[in-house]
């Protein structure tokens, strides 16, 4: 090309500018002192930590704005540790910046690619050695080795089988059966319709046979919310209406999304809200999902009152409660 474009050129590393402390012995002394003071402060910090550990009371709380009520001993142990570590750091950096040589140096880089001869030699050697093993010539060995290595990884997987039992029907069942009484959580007392005013909410669990412990695993499936509305607020089909009792309606408390407890009830709107991902269920319409990621309504528990006047389940849940799983047949909700 005749009119070659001329580009800017690298002027090279700029000249080194000396610092104060390099030329001026006074500035140097001053920097030295600063570093020493920082290291001394660090030592002081350690003393503070140890002293707070030994001499302070561990149950003393003081209120500080923003921080709130604070345990004084923990605070001072922490502040001591802060001082002790921070000052070592600041001292070292100050030392490096003010007193150590600050002239940048240059090192060469080399390409990582090996020399052509080395690469060729490697390939040749590799083929030669592979030939010695004869892996290419002995397909029987190659294939059986492949099989063996492929299979050997299976045993640890199989051995993991005993990490837990099989789920069986666990996800499909709860402890609610026809005639199970509702008992308040955590008091454990059965309840009558009159115990619940309009607008009130209660968390209940199924009454268990005497001697059966109440496990968290069961609560995770059994928890039910009782809500009392005015009967005219309902907007239910006749079957679902027959599952309520004098305005009292019961839903599984376990979110059909990912299993959090659906705990927030808004009285004015009759909405149940799950705080995890804000799925919102309309109580008047059989807990239909009106907002959020949940795909199914909360299962409704059919209620009745037994001969003694206690609230009781009319039948088990008609569908599995809680989040979805592969085996769940969701044809009926």
């Amino acid at each position: 090309m005749s009119n070659q474009i001329e580009r800017f050129e690298d002027p090279g590393l700029p000249e080194h500018i000396h610092r104060n402390a390099d030329a001026d012995p006074l500035a140097e002394k001053r920097a030295e002192k600063q570093v020493a003071i920082l290291f001394l402060l660090s030592a002081l910090g350690t003393v503070l930590t140890i002293a707070s550990y030994i001499f302070m009371k561990s149950d003393q709380y003081v209120y500080f704005p923003v921080m709130g009520s604070t345990n004084v001993q923990q605070l001072f142990i922490g502040l001591g540790l802060t001082l002790a570590t921070l000052c070592i750091g600041l001292g070292a950096i100050q030392w490096a910046k003010k007193l150590m040589p600050d002239q940048e140096v240059i090192a060469e880089r080399h390409e990582f690619r090996s020399e052509e001869v080395d690469r060729e030699e490697l390939v040749a050697t590799f083929h030669d050695r592979a030939g010695q093993a004869g892996i290419g010539r002995r397909p029987l060995i190659k294939r059986t080795l492949g099989l063996a290595v492929g299979l050997v990884g299976l045993s640890p997987l199989v051995l993991l089988r005993d990490t837990g039992p099989l789920p069986g029907k666990f996800f499909e069942t709860t402890n609610w059966a026809a005639g199970t009484r509702l008992v308040l959580d955590p008091a454990g007392t059965p309840i009558k319709p009159e115990d619940l005013e309009v607008g009130a909410v209660a968390q209940v669990l199924p009454e268990l046979p005497a001697g059966t412990p109440r496990t968290l695993e069961n609560i995770g499936k059994d928890a039910v919310l009782l809500i009392r509305l005015r009967p005219e607020d309902f907007n239910l089909d006749p079957e679902r209406l027959s599952w309520t009792y004098q305005g009292i309606i019961a839903f599984s408390k376990i979110c059909t999304h990912m299993g959090c407890a659906v705990a927030l009830y808004e009285q004015q709107t009759h909405h149940l809200l799950c705080p995890c991902h804000q799925s919102t269920f309309d109580v008047t319409r059989a807990a239909k999902v009106i907002f959020g990621p949940a795909a199914r309504p909360l299962p409704q528990l059919a209620l009745m009152v037994n001969a003694d006047g206690y609230l009781t389940a009319k039948q088990p849940f008609s569908v599995p409660v809680g989040p979805s799983f592969w085996e769940r047949n969701s044809a009926n909700g």
Partner: peptide, 9 residues
Amino acid sequence: GFFFIVFGV
């Protein structure tokens, strides 16, 4: 030094 500063913070 920087390690101790991160620790301190």
